[in-house]
Design a protein around this nucleic acid. Structure first.
Lengths: 194, 194
DNA sequence: TTGTCCATGTAAACAGTTACATGATTGA
DNA sequence: TCAATCATGTAACTGTTTACATGGACAA
């Protein structure tokens, strides 16, 4: 049920099209939530029917329209209500851990597994750091747009929350990197010639 | 697609019923993967049809049977193949982060949010530590069963992989706790009288 | 006899992915 | 003119959750 709030949240910064949302889910917002356009367009229709968003047709040429969605007051209130609720933690579903604990009959695959894990999170950390730097430097477009029409005090909170979110994900990546490196060190003590 | 491997992995330790699997997904294995019985029974049927598991009827009373599933050689091979593959990382979907970054209009909810986050992961860490202690002490039933029919060297790998998995999840919990505590400290500097 | 656990299923709804489908605009 | 990007949709399939459905065993 978070898809709709990801959409409402995005539109709470500025109006946009379904295509904008799909693009955003592939880049910025995609760190926290993602969806394909095949999921976005039907959800936008439902949100419109429920009165949480409003759709305006904008001509992009003579006979072609695009649809710009914006939050209604009811939509803004629905978002506020949702962000006020306590977080709900979904059940763990970690295929990688399954590979690990049931991979005791294929230990020869461990080295590649752990290396891939480390590399994956090194890359992740890199991209997260770039985003966090952009936020800190004030060059992050979406954050700039969100901060724009807020008071100085409110803007500071917006900024801090983004920093918390990205710093948290960076910390997660670092935990994974340290874990993989520890595990690789152990592996070396077990099979030194490899 | 990991559900089937969670099942194959479970059965690779010892045969069991669908009910056993459901119970296990609610407890031990549930840390890494979970499923309801409504998903398990159909999957067991498919695995049987594909020849990866084998089902035997065992009488529990005169006219009632239960069905004990065990891995076939093909099933064991399918599991080996899967654990040999590199991990696949699913797209992030983190509703809590969305609540955070779009919660800049409801900052009054932040304190409860962060406290709940910390408490959630403190509890998680506690339960994880208990499990890891049981593994270290050799009192963890499933691990004991898995280690039982292995050579000393193979058993050591089984043990180490479990320890890695649980230690990794403990490290994750600790990252979350530290993150929430840092954020709470910042909150106090912003709104000291609360 | 009542509640809990054991045990196995199906059905409907919801969420997410992949594939099918179309067409305009823009820049190399 | 060819490829990339903009733009919007539907259909089929897979995976997950919630609800419906049934019945035996066992202990308080």
């Amino acid at each position: 049920m978070s898809l709709r709030y990801a959409i409402l949240g995005y539109l709470s910064t500025a109006p946009g099209t379904g295509y904008d949302l799909a693009r955003q889910f592939d880049t910025g917002l995609g760190w926290f939530w993602t969806a394909n356009h095949s999921q976005i367009y039907p959800e936008l229709r439902r949100l419109t029917e429920e009165g949480l968003v409003e759709r305006d047709a904008t001509a992009i040429s003579e006979n072609v329209d695009k649809f710009v969605y914006s939050l209604t007051p009811a939509g803004r209130e629905a978002l506020r209500e949702w962000t006020s609720q306590l977080p709900v933690y979904p059940p763990n579903r970690d295929g990688e851990r399954l590979q690990l604990i049931f991979g005791d009959e294929t230990p020869e695959a461990l080295h590649a597994h752990l290396t891939a894990h480390r590399d994956h999170f090194v890359q992740r950390r890199q991209r997260l750091k770039e985003t966090l730097d952009a936020i800190d430097a004030g060059t992050h477009e979406r954050v700039k747009a969100r901060v724009a029409n807020r008071s100085k005090k409110a803007a500071a909170i917006t900024l801090k929350l983004r920093q918390l979110a990205y710093a948290g994900d960076i910390a997660r990546a670092e935990t994974e990197i340290a874990w993989a490196e520890d595990a690789l060190k152990w592996l070396e003590t077990v099979r030194p010639q490899k």
